[in-house]
Write a protein that binds this DNA or RNA. Structure first.
Length: 464
RNA sequence: GGUCCCUUCGUCUAGCGGUCUAGGACACCGGCCUUUCACGUCGGUAACACGGGUUCGAUUCCCGUAGGGAUCACCA
């Protein structure tokens, strides 16, 4: 074990999205690689917006991606007593103060400042007041230094510094007594002994005030690393209008978790020219040094390509199990065969998602072939009768039913009819499948089995 | 608007002063393979934002400009 302690701290106000998944992944990989500790913390101080469903959804998504954590999940809602105590400590030491300004007043001041071109920053009305207004609602603000510089060496971006006079006095405790994010994140990261805070770079601007709070609370300041954002195709922050942003939505669209992990890690991180990484390889090769500093555009095409790759090279047994779920969703019963594994093998090279695979596999299991009119019109015409009869006859003669013997039978048909496979195949395909696209017909026949194949050919012949 | 961050092909990126007539991947466009659809395979188009420095020499270092992003809540 090393001393490294990192954490992922989502707020349960929705599903786990692509960006969150990536920061979770980076934290996980680093902890694994450095043999450190990965802590999961649920940031639910906003009781009104946090839900158990969201917590479950996030946990589920992390599990799907294979991101396990060593400690947690810890809930901030269980730790209110601690925060209260720490707020009191700052109050007692004069490092925080009560502010009686109402939300409405502040909003008005902010708007006025913005309108006149000034900074929309807290004006310090209550900063120096000594009196305590009994019975009056108040918030607690952190007293920020008015001068000086706060800086830190970001593990990804390098040195970042802020003038303290740019910072205003943030609210650390609301009127209802609950603490706010910028405060609890400091108390938690400190008390959980987090040594490296690795998070999205939308938090860069929060970092200086958090550092100031670490110092005020007497905590050691951890290291920080800010990973760049993920953007949509139009370079604006990735959102629903760019397509699915929920990790689990991709599961439902037939994506494999290893494809998602591989895609996410390569968005903003690289290892020479390599593109394909298993989780195990990532744990070995990942490092912050190779994380880029600039935001990246989410590219669904590349994710799809990666998914196709993992389907192509995946274990047919596992893919078969996954495929079955998708077939079931489509109301297709696989219990009567053919073998899922055999089915998968014929589709691995041509399906980019499990959804596509399920669509391509449906014909194997449907009790009756569903004929596409256009395909029938073109390839199941009366003049094809002799050819199909010949096919049926020679296939019937096959004893050892496999790809090789089937191909041999077709060879005989070709000799007998004097036709090339190109003239025979399409009609056979329509007879077996109902449409014009499918895996190779020898494969289809082999997987379907002799009995089902002959039956389908006979049914097609009967239509002529 | 203030502050902070960022800037190599359309996109993800390699490059850590000379090896760059800038490499890989996705996408795109062609050829080949072929019983359909795919897979595969071969090849092609395509980028160092701009302007100053520093240096014998800048894609690489520094400073500006421009552009993009983030953030300025009693959300996290």
């Amino acid at each position: 074990m090393s001393d490294l302690r990192v954490r992922f701290a989502p707020s349960p106000t929705g599903y786990l999205h692509i960006g969150g998944a990536r920061t979770a992944l980076f934290n996980y990989l680093l902890a694994q690689k450095e043999k450190g500790t990965f802590v999961l913390r649920i940031e639910d101080t906003d009781v009104a917006r946090s839900t158990q469903e969201s917590v479950d959804a996030i946990l589920q998504a992390m599990d799907w991606l294979g991101l396990s954590y060593d400690e947690g999940p810890f809930y901030q809602s269980d730790r209110f007593d601690l925060y209260k105590e720490k707020v009191q400590q700052l109050l007692d030491e004069g490092k925080a103060y009560r502010c009686y300004c109402t939300a409405e007043e502040l909003e008005a001041k902010r708007e006025a400042a913005l309108k006149s071109g000034g900074k929309p920053k807290y004006d310090g009305t209550c900063r120096d007041r000594q009196d305590v207004l009994e019975g009056q609602p108040y918030v607690v603000r952190f007293r920020s230094p008015e001068e000086g510089v706060t800086e830190f060496i970001d593990r990804i971006k390098g040195k970042i510094s802020f003038q303290n006079n740019e910072l205003d006095d943030v609210i650390i405790q609301r009127t209802d007594g609950t603490p706010t994010y910028n405060f609890v994140v400091v108390v938690d990261d400190a008390t959980m002994n987090i040594t490296l805070v690795l998070r999205g770079d939308d938090h860069i601007n929060n970092t200086p005030r958090q550092i100031l709070m670490y110092q005020a609370l007497g905590y050691p300041v951890p290291e920080f690393g800010h990973v760049p954002m993920i953007l949509g195709a139009d370079k604006s922050r990735l959102s629903k209008r760019h397509g699915a942003t929920s990790v689990m939505a991709y599961k439902e669209m037939g994506y494999l978790p290893e494809a998602m992990v591989n895609y996410l890690v390569r968005l903003g991180w690289s290892f020479g020219d390599e593109e394909i990484f298993s989780l195990a390889e990532l744990i070995e090769k990942f490092s912050l040094e190779n994380v880029g500093r600039s935001a990246g555009v989410f590219n669904p095409d590349k994710l799809l390509w990666l998914n196709a790759h993992y389907i192509k090279t995946g274990d047919p047994v596992r893919l078969g199990q996954l495929l079955q779920e998708f077939l079931q969703k489509d109301g297709i019963d696989t219990s009567a065969g053919p073998e899922l594994i055999a089915v998968v093998k014929t589709l691995q090279d041509r399906a980019k998602t499990l959804v596509e695979m399920a669509q391509g596999a449906a014909f194997y299991f449907k009790p009756e072939v569903e004929f596409e009119p256009a395909a029938v019109e073109k390839f199941l015409t009366a003049d094809k009768k002799p050819v199909l009869e010949s096919v049926l006859r020679h296939l019937d003669l096959v004893n050892e039913w496999n790809e090789g013997t089937i191909e041999a039978a077709f060879g005989t048909v070709m000799e007998e009819t004097g036709l090339k496979l190109g003239k025979i195949g399409p009609s056979v395909r329509v007879a077996l499948v109902g449409g014009t696209t499918s895996p190779g017909i020898f494969d289809v026949l082999a997987v379907l089995g002799k009995e089902a194949s002959l039956k389908r050919l006979q049914i097609a012949l009967d239509r002529l």
